[in-house]
């Protein structure tokens, strides 16, 4: 618990996390301005914002989460912080779990706060939306959709954490993460961003509370689990020096 609190203090003091959060807020406002011209009511009105942000941040911002992982995880190998912490007798497993929990926490916080900014901006410029267009069980659908969206996001962050444990250098981690993200954007393989894009069809047809929608995100769960296991093995087995 103490380790986790320490990690949160580091994140709070980190200028790069602050700036990346500001950048995401700006992306949210830009996305809101771009989608204003869309033909789909989900994109025009505020009620659609919780369903579209993963798409907007997926295309534009996944690599920014790589910068957070590179700065908070990989750079600690370079600066010797991890060496100092482990020398103090802290268990590797405990340190890894605290680190991952903190990074996941800040990722979810940035995602939700940017989503909030987008929602408020869309409501301000176009309104929440006509009552006949808003989905039935709106609150539940927002919860379910964003639960899966967060899973999608965390699966990519887990991949970045695995890359950080592999390279142990901030710049190499970022470049490798960027290459992986761009390979997926250019359809070299199917990953979380492509899954987020496919989710748009379910939103427009109001099929969020279906088993097909849940099945769409199964690969994300597998990516998350396998990447975390891989990162944990790399962190545990490899010598820090």
């Amino acid at each position: 618990m103490r380790l986790f609190v320490n990690e949160l203090c580091k994140i709070k003091a980190s200028k790069s996390v602050r700036w990346i959060t500001i950048v995401f807020f700006c992306f949210a406002v830009l996305a809101g301005a771009v989608w204003k011209q869309s033909a789909s009511p989900v994109a025009i009105y505020g009620f659609g914002a919780p369903f579209l942000w993963i798409l907007g941040s997926g295309a534009s911002g996944f690599f920014l989460y790589a910068a957070i992982v590179a700065g908070l995880f990989a750079s600690e190998f370079e600066s010797g912080v991890i060496h100092n912490v482990l020398d103090c007798g802290v268990k590797r497993s405990g340190y890894f779990i605290a680190k991952v929990a903190a990074i996941f926490g800040v990722t979810i916080l940035i995602y939700l706060s940017s989503l909030g900014v987008l929602f408020l901006f869309k409501c301000r410029i176009a309104g929440f939306g006509p009552a006949d267009l808003v989905f039935d069980d709106y609150g539940l659908k927002v919860l379910v959709f964003n639960g899966w969206a967060v899973c999608c996001l965390l699966s990519y962050v887990a991949v970045y954490i695995m890359i950080a444990c592999l390279f142990r250098e901030a710049v190499l981690t970022f470049i490798a993460s960027l290459v992986v993200t761009l390979c997926e954007l250019f359809n070299l393989f199917r990953g979380p961003v492509q899954i987020a894009i496919n989710a748009v069809g379910f939103i427009e047809n109001d099929r969020i509370l279906t088993s097909e929608f849940a099945a769409l995100f199964t690969p994300c769960v597998w990516i998350l689990v396998i990447s975390l296991i891989g990162a944990y093995m790399l962190f545990l087995v490899r010598d820090v020096d």
Binding site: S16, V23, F27, L30, A33, V34, K36, Q37, S60, F63, L64, A67, A70, G71, S75, A170, V171, F174, I175, L178
Partner: peptide, 26 residues
Amino acid sequence: NQLVAIVSGIGIVYLEVIIRQTAEMN
């Protein structure tokens, strides 16, 4: 800072594309 410089550079390129797209659509 090396990492921040790289991220900023990538962000600038990305922003150039998004600004024009936003301006076109609006």
